[in-house]
Computed example of a mutant assay.
Amino acid sequence: MTEDMFSTERLRVRHFTPDDLDDFAALCADPAVMRYVGDGDTLDRAGVAYWIEVCQGKYADRGYGTSAVFERASGDFVGYCGVVRAPGNDFDELIYVFHQRFWGCGYATEAGRAMLDHVFAISSLDEIAATIHPDNHASIKIAGKLGMVEQPSRVVEDDGPSTFFAITREQHAAR
């Protein structure tokens, strides 16, 4: 088993391994879960296996990337959270996606806050962003809870409409 990157009161977070393929693929096959992720399409098993390979390269290069999130009490796979730089972007972005049964539990805020702590601690990043579909009201609320501020002047050429949020290292440290 891979060592945890960090844990919170209710969650454990660690790097993905090939052993996580079944759990990760099941998450990415759910259309409701993937509605606001990328182009909104689900991912097949081969696409998820490739994503795990990319993640492992990011861990080696940067020390962080998309990471597996587990519920501490049950050990169940909740979903993923991480800070990534999408191809073509010039910014690093907080992402999180969880199984529907864990929606509304506060896990995205809990994991997001801890991921920001972790990445700011091990990197030289001055800012971490989030691009959120304007209809994804839950994620917009979470961004606010994390101290992220909407940046209306920043536009991202993404797979669809996005609202840009960001938090600086200083803003995060002051929280």
Rank of each mutant, 00 (worst) to 15 (best):
T2P: 04
D4R: 08
M5F: 08
M5Y: 02
F6L: 04
S7D: 13
V13D: 03
F16D: 11
P18F: 09
F24M: 13
A26V: 09
A26T: 12
A26C: 06
C28S: 15
C28M: 08
V33H: 11
M34R: 08
R35L: 15
D41P: 01
D44L: 09
D44A: 05
W51C: 10
C55I: 00
Q56V: 01
G57Y: 04
Y59T: 12
Y64I: 09
G65Y: 08
A68N: 02
F70S: 01
R72Q: 14
D76F: 03
D76Y: 04
P87R: 04
G88L: 08
D92V: 06
I95K: 01
H99S: 13
Q100E: 12
Q100K: 13
G104M: 09
G104T: 06
C105M: 15
T109Y: 09
R113L: 07
R113S: 13
R113A: 14
D117I: 00
H118R: 09
F120G: 03
D126H: 03
E127M: 03
A129R: 12
A130L: 01
H137V: 12
S139T: 01
I140W: 00
I140T: 10
G144P: 05
K145C: 06
K145R: 14
L146W: 05
G147W: 00
V155L: 14
V156C: 11
D158I: 00
S162F: 06
I167G: 07
I167D: 10
R169E: 08
Q171S: 15
H172C: 07
